[in-house]
Every structure is written in structure tokens, then in C-alpha cells.
Design a protein around this nucleic acid. Structure first.
Lengths: 222, 222
DNA sequence: GTGTAAAACCCAAAACTTTTGTGGTTTTTC
DNA sequence: GAAAAACCACAAAAGTTTTGGGTTTTACAC
């Protein structure tokens, strides 16, 4: 009987226990599944560091937003992911996130490139089981909503640079055009130029900003 | 008992029959699965056109390279895919292809945006069943090798324009630098510039073309 | 309806990037 | 060891983006 070691990290204790409960009940070949848990950045970090010199985790489940964002606690799941990649490169990392918007999914897939990405509303016993079995078989696992975001991105031949993405993102959260200057290192006329250019890319020339952000959403950019 | 209608198109009759055999044996809720088949472009086209005015297929499985490429027969799975999208937009389209190289997968995902993409070496009864159930549930299905290609692409922040991609592609199939001019609408010095630029993007400065194409392969571009 | 602030639009000069031709040196191939 | 191919450096030309200066249009509070 082989042992499959899993670490599940989520700051909501009940959620974390839910994962443990479900994961340990998975029937998987002749594996005995053991789930360790952590519900703070510090305890998770410790467990990962300890694992380097003993058993290494086969899979680490990480909540993207480990803590309610606040200034005194700058750490998040992404940092833990990068730390794990460095310390225990063979451990598979599966991110869990409540973000299902394309912008966040795309940016996390770039910054961390996890072995799996699950949108929380897609998580249930069946999908958890599929995720475990898939990543053990060395293939990436993306949950249904994550895949939909990915599909939109892949089927698209518009490529935007960071400034374009920032403009779209800020417009989508309601930032006014005149305030964009404070978030993007460009003059206001450049921003206006880029907005015009974006509208022509997305086929919403002569329409308003709402039309632009709707089109960008449909194409998977925000 | 509901009926799930599937059309399977593959130019190898035995393969096509294999799909039919496997697909019709899938146990899926209270669906009765009926599989129609076609092994030429023309017969597939007819079946799809007929379906417009009677039952519509729920799923259409299409081989990407329907026929051995030859001048007299320019049609392929991609054309059939686009035709189906136009005639029966509600039918799910799942592409099957022997290509597992990133360049081809990326380009097909862009040109057709199918509901599913399966690399032939990934196809077996289990994955066919998963594909059918997934696309019926409105989610995209990508087989393991397709997902690996997609993952590489998504985790990458290098974006290349068409000329860069062509240069990489042609280098990878052995085209000599001096002959690139015949395939790409740029002067030889521009091509040299771009090659230099590409090498710096991929961190293979001062190395030879082989190092460049290996790096580009690893990052999912060819 | 009117006044006003925001947003959108326009233009031309400046800054920057890419392309191109030319003329070379180095590396590879046979 | 000669010829071909690959690579490099430079500078002029062409193209793109940014910028600061405007004017016009839109939104909406009153």
C-alpha cells in the first residue's frame, strides 16, 4: 500500500476540514491517502518547510486568497505556491480560488502555473477526486469554469500588453477615464489612444466604454 | 428516454466504426445514444446538412485531417467544423487530431474553437465517455495532451506575432535561414533581427538555432 | 432647459521601434 | 581550404506610440 500525502490550505477552518474529509475518502488504486491541513500562511509554510526533509507532499491544495486582504499580512496563496515550487518542486500544486473572472484566472495561470486550478463553485467530491487522480497522472487539471475562461483566451487572436489589460480592468471596475492616469504610467492622451485602439480591436468603434468592456469580457480578457 | 445523437467522422473506416462501437455503449443517465458515421467529406457534409431540417446532432466528432492532404481534395475537418457551426450552431463539435505539437493545437483552437479537442493518442473508451458527458454539460473537454499544450501557452508571457511564429515554425521544420525570405514577407536583415530578438526572448542568446527551437518548443510555441 | 464637469475626440511634434540595405566577420560544411 | 551560410553592426528610412495642446460632445444635477 502506497501513501499519497496531501496538504490542504484554506483559511476557513470548516472548508479546510471539508477538504480533508472528502479527500481522505477517495478510493484510488492501492493508495492510502493522508491529508494534512493548515489554515494560516505561517502554519502552511512550516508544514511545507518540514516536508522538505521528511516525506514530501504529493499534492498541495492552496487557497489563492489565504487571508482577508490587509496591509499587515501581505502573504497569500501565490507566495506559498512559489515557495513550494522552490522547496519541493515535485509536489503538485492545485490552486483553489473564488475568482471565476477571466482576468484573475489568466493572471494566476501566468504567475504560478499550478498543476491544477479549481474555481470554488466547481469544487465538489467528484471534481476533487478527478483533480487528485489527474495530477498524480502528471496531467494538468482545470475545473469547468477555469476551462471556459481558458477556452475563450485560447480561441482569441487579440493580444494585449499590460497597459491595455490594466485599462480594461480598471474600466471594468468603474474607474473613470480621467482617473486611469493614476493607475497607468501613461499620459491621458495615450490612454485615450489606447482606448480607441481597443475599441477598434474589439469591434466597438464609436460605441461607449460599456460596449468595450462587454466585448472584452466575452472574449475572456476581463 | 431521451436520445443523444452523435455523428462521428473519420476517413479510416475501422477507426470510425471503433468510435461508433464505443460511443453507443456509453451508459449516460436516461439517454439513448445513437451514433451516425461518415468517412468522407462529402457524406459528412450531407449528413450535417440533412440534420438541419430533422433532428440535429448533439455532438459531432470530427477528424482534423479528414483526408490525406492532396491538391484535388482541399476540404478537411476544419471546413466541416465551420460549416457545422453555421448550419447547426447548437451541435457541440469535438475535434480529433493526431497532432500533439503545440503549434498545431494552438492554431486549431484559434481557428475553430471547438467544444472539445482530443489528441488521438489520448482517445480511449474512458476519455470518449468523459468528452461526451462534459460537452453535454456545456463545458469544454480537452484531452490530457491537449491540456498540456494549453497549459504551456497560458503560463507564458511571451507573445509573438505571426512573423515570429512563422520564423520559429520554419526553423523547426529545417528551413534554412537564407530560405526564410521565401516564406516570410520581410527582408533578410529583418529576419536576422527577429531571430536575434527571439533568441533573447527565449534566453538563448549567442546559441544556435537548435537551442532556440528547443526553448520555443518547451514553452509551447512550436 | 442650462451650466458644468467629464469624457471623447483631434492634431502635430517628439520619442521610440522596426525595417532595410550595405558591408563586413565568423562559423559551418564538404 | 574554398564556398556557403550564419551572424553582426551600423545608419537611413519607414512606421508606431506617446505626448501636450487643444475643441467638441455627452451626461446629469439643478
Amino acid at each position: 500500500m502506497k501513501t499519497l500525502r496531501i496538504l490542504a490550505v484554506d483559511d476557513h477552518e470548516m472548508t479546510m476540514l471539508g477538504y480533508k474529509f472528502i479527500l481522505e475518502r477517495i478510493v484510488f488504486d492501492d493508495y492510502n491517502i493522508i491529508v494534512d491541513t493548515a489554515n494560516t500562511y505561517e502554519s502552511a509554510k512550516e508544514k511545507i518547510e518540514e516536508s522538505v526533509y521528511s516525506f514530501k507532499y504529493d499534492i498541495i491544495f492552496l487557497d489563492v486568497q489565504l487571508f482577508p486582504p490587509n496591509e499587515s499580512q501581505p502573504h497569500n496563496g501565490e507566495d506559498l505556491g512559489m515557495l513550494s515550487r522552490k522547496l519541493v518542486p515535485d509536489s503538485k500544486i492545485i490552486f483553489m480560488s473564488s475568482f471565476s473572472d477571466n482576468y484573475r484566472i489568466n493572471s494566476i495561470l501566468k504567475s504560478v502555473d499550478p498543476d491544477g486550478y479549481m474555481v470554488k463553485t466547481d469544487i465538489d467530491p467528484k471534481s476533487l477526486e478527478a483533480a487528485v487522480k489527474t495530477v498524480v497522472a502528471e496531467a494538468p487539471y482545470y475545473s469547468s469554469k477555469a476551462l471556459s475562461a481558458i477556452r475563450k483566451k485560447m480561441s482569441n487572436d487579440i493580444t494585449l500588453d499590460e497597459n491595455d489589460k490594466k485599462i480594461l480592468y480598471h474600466l471594468s471596475i468603474g474607474t473613470k477615464t480621467k482617473d486611469l492616469e493614476n493607475h497607468i504610467e501613461l499620459s491621458s492622451s495615450s490612454i485615450e489612444n489606447r482606448k480607441r485602439h481597443l475599441k477598434s480591436l474589439f469591434g466597438t468603434e464609436k460605441e461607449n466604454d460599456l460596449a468595450l468592456i462587454l466585448a472584452a469580457k466575452n472574449r475572456g480578457f476581463i
